[in-house]
């Protein structure tokens, strides 16, 4: 048998692509442990790490408050979207009716609307109903992109399971709601989990709505970076610390749920 060639060129190119992808994140991680003076030596990798940036981000800027606000908005949004979206997906999967395609298209199309355009009507709604700078307006606005996503995903999960169990349950006297709760939903558990995870990440990282619809009362971590500016410039150490805290849960969550995510996607 012929020995496989080592394919050095391919490995080198792939390594280059990895470097391009990961370098900015590694660089930010390094910067978050540097003192302000060390910023002028960007290429320095070996140095005594300082935790001052993290301390300043928490004590002076209330980093923990940003994290809590992000969690409240994201979790509430995911909960609402999962409940509404799953039931809607089930209804759209089970029943046919006139103009169904139009209904589906209308629902899905809102997902690709540019947030910078839709933030304007949400801003007006916020003014009119005095909802600006509240959790409510952010949870509502995030539904624009997360709810259609739940519908798309859950529809495909429902399509993947056969109708037999459900029909058997209904023959045994289960109502359709009962069949949905007891028979159908347990079969798409991983799907719900994967969808919820991706919704959470989208909400956690959302920037445009959070920037213009909140001010001092609600501050998500995604927009908090904007405050780290003084007249002398951007506080790079603190910004990097905040960036690390913002990215960390995403990476941890991706690793922890990778098995489910891959299963859910295929």
């Amino acid at each position: 048998m012929k020995k496989a060639p080592p394919r050095i060129r391919e490995h080198a190119l792939l390594a280059l692509a990895c470097l391009f992808s990961a370098f900015p994140i590694v660089f930010m991680l390094l910067t978050s442990f540097k003192t302000r003076a060390m910023l002028y030596e960007p290429a320095r990798v070996l140095f005594e790490p300082t935790f001052d940036n993290y301390r300043a981000a928490i004590v002076q800027y209330g980093l923990h408050k940003f994290v809590v606000d992000s969690l409240i908005v994201s979790v509430a949004n995911v909960a609402v979207c999962l409940v509404l979206g799953t039931v809607a997906a089930y209804a759209l999967h089970k029943f046919t009716f006139r103009r169904k395609e139009l209904v589906v298209f209308t629902i899905l199309s809102s997902r690709i609307f540019p947030s910078i355009a839709l933030v304007i009507p949400f801003y007006i709604i916020g003014i009119a109903f005095q909802l600006l700078d509240t959790y409510t307006i952010l949870v509502l606005a995030f539904m624009v992109f997360n709810l259609p996503f739940v519908v798309i995903m859950m529809r495909s999960y429902f399509a993947a399971i056969g109708p037999e169990f459900e029909e058997a349950a209904m023959l045994d006297g289960c109502s359709r709601v009962g069949a949905l709760l007891r028979v159908v939903l347990p079969q798409v558990k991983t799907g719900i989990f994967a969808t919820g995870t991706m919704c959470f990440l989208a909400a956690w990282n959302e920037f445009t709505y959070a920037l213009f619809l909140s001010a001092s009362n609600v501050n998500m971590i995604s927009t908090a970076v904007v405050f780290f500016k003084t007249e002398r410039g951007i506080l790079w150490g603190e910004v990097s610390a905040l960036g690390v805290v913002a990215i960390l849960p995403v990476i941890v969550l991706c690793f922890a749920t990778q098995k489910f995510l891959v299963k859910g996607m295929s």
């Binding site: 994140i25 930010m28 970076v225 905040l242 990215i247 995403v250």
Partner: peptide, 10 residues
């Protein structure tokens, strides 16, 4: 995994 605002700042 990186949020858009932080990507810009990085």
């Amino acid at each position: 995994a990186v949020n858009p605002a932080i990507a810009g700042l990085m």
